[in-house]
């Protein structure tokens, strides 16, 4: 696992280097590939990335230029100087370092998860679940994730949480925290999921909420390691 900043840096490098050199669908595939397979490994090898990209979608039009552009961007330390994160305000972008990103494809089978990305703890499973829910909500409206975070924060006031859990969940609601840590307890995680459930029921209705949770649970359950930390158990 890498830090959220490093994950965002890798995604920015891939996106900004490729967007003026590759067709749109290949840019999207490159970003997805980066998120899926290159956010859990400590060293980001551009050569290895391009090899995998070629295997996945075919040879890029100007591979040499792409390699050079990525290399140039890699030396820039200021993230904003590289350019905005392509996933941008999407909350799911924040957790890609911790766990594999749940597929935002609604109603379609998700792509098979990478062997390199694993859910290796309950907080990681919890992170993936919440991120997946926000990613699904994004499909319902661009303002939904922000509304969900705000509603989530309000719901948290009504439940008993450990001090650490309260701090982490509130930080997540404020978008200051991307990945939950082992300081959060099981009761905190249950309460967190439930807070989002109640908000969703009130906002979207119980049927849509059940569908939403069901889809995300199915999605997150496919990731490596999810069998040991089944997201269903967090409901």
């Amino acid at each position: 696992m890498v830090t959220p900043q490093e994950a965002s840096r890798r995604r920015r490098i891939v996106y900004h280097a490729s967007r003026s050199r590759l067709p749109d669908e290949m840019v999207n595939a490159a970003v997805k590939l980066c998120d899926r397979e290159f956010q859990a490994i400590p060293v980001f090898s551009i050569q290895k990335f391009l090899t995998r990209l070629t295997e996945a979608v075919g040879t890029p039009p100007k591979p040499g230029e792409l390699f050079a552009a990525m290399n140039r961007l890699r030396v820039i330390t200021d993230l904003d100087e590289i350019g905005p994160d392509p996933v941008g305000p999407l909350p799911v972008a924040k957790v890609q370092t911790a766990v594999a990103e749940p597929s935002p494809t609604r109603g379609r089978p998700s792509e098979p998860p990478s062997r390199d990305s694993r859910i290796d703890s309950w907080p990681a499973s919890f992170t993936a679940l919440l991120s997946g829910l926000l990613a699904e909500l994004q499909h319902l409206g661009p303002d939904m994730p922000a509304a969900a975070r705000a509603g989530f924060a309000l719901q948290l006031q009504k439940v008993d949480l450990s001090p650490a859990g309260y701090a982490e969940l509130n930080s997540w609601a404020d978008e200051k925290l991307c990945t939950f840590t082992n300081r959060i307890t099981s009761a905190d995680m249950h309460a967190g999921v439930h807070a989002l459930y109640v908000w969703s029921c009130e906002e979207l209705g119980p049927i849509e909420t059940d569908r939403l949770f069901s889809a995300v649970i199915r999605d997150v359950s496919q990731y490596p390691g999810a069998a040991q930390f089944p997201p269903r158990n967090l409901l």
Binding site: M189, H190, R232, N233
Partner: peptide, 14 residues
């Protein structure tokens, strides 16, 4: 897909 899975066989936190 909808259900709480009960006690985890791992005995882990949740």
């Amino acid at each position: 897909g909808l259900l709480h899975g009960g006690t985890a066989s791992t005995g882990a936190a949740p």
